[in-house]
Design a protein around this nucleic acid. Structure first.
Lengths: 404, 404
DNA sequence: GTGTAGGCATTTGGCCGACAA
DNA sequence: TTGTCGGCCAAATGCCTACAC
């Protein structure tokens, strides 16, 4: 297979006329951050309408009040689909990356008995670095200080016989727009700096201290530059074209119609506004629900810290059961109620899904991201919520999960 | 009635905490432009799903391809509703104004036999002016040249005994944010200028030559400042949270559900991205369909020119019939096929609706905007499309409308 | 190794009247 | 009446080194 780990429409950007620019998959993921993963094209996935609605709710912070009750749709909490296509995109204004996923519901009869194997980890062919901008980096007073290792690994090599050594860098952003930077190596002690061209980039991308910038040099030597705005001031100023209620209904009706007619539909996945992925690989899902999880169990989970790096928080499972027992009964979506060891920056995430957590046993050095921990001795034990478990929420006492 | 012509939630902005800011109705309309009108709250209106879908299509120029056929909804082309509420809003980033309209479907039994009277024209209590920005206005080199009449009618009076006469203006924008400008009267010959504070406003609002700025002084003396970006470079950078198809389905399913259950629903009306209003007063609708319209008839129609002012184009009706005979049979939406006398800036608008046109007989000096012309002698003649009319499209020959 | 501050040349910002359209 | 320009000074931008942490 010549396709990369995340199979997207890998169009070598030849005809990049105007608005449509095929984003390189590796670059898209560099911009999305280390926590974001996308399923492989043509693989089986599980789609969670609940999670999709969460994304919609997050994108319109206020005015989420619904005027009238939403009509009932005969929708299961999760839908097995084949991922028939992915289009990687970026917001023209904010450079935020997002993806359109084309999903085709899979008939029960086509459901494979054994899960497909997870794809092999990708082999790195290109070098990249990501730096959180300091006050000096974003100040008009100076340029950008390139970390030494980053410059040596990622930028084209300088001619050190020059005095001072310098060159012009040309890097394309996520829209294919070229940015030019003067790269110079000077000062005592010596350091790599981007000077001319840097400040216009900062102001154009509206970067402030705390935001991140990333450079990526591909196989062909092409240099790319991306930005990642800090999490906190994510001013989601997307105008509502339709009302919130309409959007909710649209998501549900689309899925319901697609399931009934077995028709392809598409969803938009916004990593930045989405708290949890709502399209996950089927094998990941199977692995997760096969693992034994019980109240009182300790776990770890990956998060993105304020400086756009990855870190792990640990916590304890305090309950197992439905988030919304009326609308989505017997759903695995955020079926785990948890308590965190440290108080987290934002008080959210009181509930997580099975496939989001890692067992405390498994070591932190895992080849592919988000691998799931499991107890080998207790296979086949499902964590499907039962009445007993729901009742256990009231008492915080650790309690083993059990099936009827 | 103490309410203004366009009845909106006229909240005197006392508690304008953070994101929610009640926009003054008159100011909203000044920002929306002279062509935009909104129905009165609690009046009967006609909602056109077709038009609503047009707005959705316009807001996402590309990627409007639909993956799978949209499910059939048992929806009539137009829905009689009571406008139970309007909330006037503005985009936090672009200052574009838009409105949320709460609609409650009206039962056939409640349908009034006589149309409600159109409201009396509003009495102007405040002064406003709108100026298209020149190169000098937007240049960093200078300030803003206030037209003489505008300054005298609209701005607080200067103390002309000063040398030079000057004052500080404080104007709130559509979000309630205050902007300060130094207003000075100087030069030979004398002129009104805004100097200090103007350039930050220009860069903050991303104004370029060709855009418009408007000032409005209300009854209470409060000064307001709004912007209107030029039509041409309307970069609609609203991120799609859901797919285009989902949005389409959402609009249709919401309306269908609301009609069936007689439940209130809400729509968002974006004047800037919407080619035609899709919620129109019921009396306007009645008047329009009662008027006699025939192929070959001459008419005028109001448009917004590039410099944000109103102008009229004239044309000839070349056909009468359905836009989409399959999906929306027997619809009045854009039932008139027209040909314009002059080639218009953008080649669109080949089809218009009955209530959008003015008869050539009626004089251009009309008290309320968008009054409809009609032939008094030919009342009760409907322009409802028939098979004969549809066939008449092929031949461009003038042909009188007739009913079976 | 790298963030920040001081030094200083150069550019840009921004207020003014003059002049013409 | 008002758009644009040249003049002029103030403020900022931006490249450099020095010095800490």
């Amino acid at each position: 297979m010549a396709s990369s780990y995340v199979g997207s429409k890998l169009v070598d950007e030849k005809g990049e006329g105007g608005s449509m620019f095929a984003i390189n998959s590796e670059f898209w993921h560099a911009c999305a951050g280390p926590l974001i993963s996308l399923p492989v094209v043509n693989s089986l996935v599980v789609y969670w309408p609940q999670g999709h609605l969460e994304q919609v709710a997050n994108s319109t912070p206020q005015a989420s009040s619904v005027l009238s009750p939403i009509p009932q749709y005969d929708l299961p909490p999760h839908i097995l689909c084949r991922l028939t296509g992915i289009t990687l995109m970026a917001h023209p204004d904010t450079d935020k990356v997002y993806a359109q996923m084309d999903l085709t519901p899979v008939r029960e009869s086509e459901k494979p008995s054994v899960s497909e194997e997870p794809p092999p980890p990708a082999k790195r062919k290109s070098y990249s670095f990501c730096k959180t901008l300091t006050a000096s980096d974003t100040s008009t007073h100076g340029g950008f200080s390139v970390p030494r290792r980053a410059a040596e690994e990622c930028l084209p090599e300088l001619d050190y016989t020059m005095n001072p050594p310098c060159q012009e860098l040309v890097a394309k952003d996520v829209h294919g727009v070229e940015w030019k930077f003067r790269h110079i190596y000077r000062g005592h002690p010596r350091r790599h700096l981007l000077t001319t061209g840097w400040s216009v980039f900062v102001s154009s991308k509206r970067l402030v201290a705390g935001d991140s910038v990333l450079f990526l040099r591909g196989e062909n030597g092409q240099l790319r530059v991306g930005v990642r705005h800090a999490l906190k001031q994510q001013q989601d100023s997307q105008s509502m074209v339709v009302s919130n209620q309409s959007t909710y209904i649209g998501v549900l009706a689309t899925a319901a119609h697609a399931v009934t007619e077995k028709l392809r539909f598409s969803v938009i996945y916004h990593p930045s506004t989405c708290t949890s992925e709502f399209v996950i690989p089927y094998h990941k899902y199977l692995k997760a629900i096969k693992s034994s999880v019980s109240v009182g169990m300790r776990f770890k989970m990956r998060f993105e810290s304020e400086d756009s790096t990855e870190r792990r928080y640990s916590g304890t499972i305090t309950g197992i059961g439905d988030v919304d027992a009326v609308r989505w009964p017997n759903s695995y979506w955020r079926s785990l109620k948890v308590e965190w060891d440290e108080s987290m920056a934002s008080g959210r995430h009181e509930r997580v899904s099975l496939w989001e957590i890692e067992s405390f046993n498994s070591v932190a050095t895992l080849p592919p991201p988000t691998s799931l921990g499991q107890y080998p001795s207790q296979k086949r034990r499902l964590a499907r919520p039962t009445l007993a478990m729901k009742l256990s929420w009231t008492s915080k006492l650790p309690r083993l999960s059990s099936m009827p």
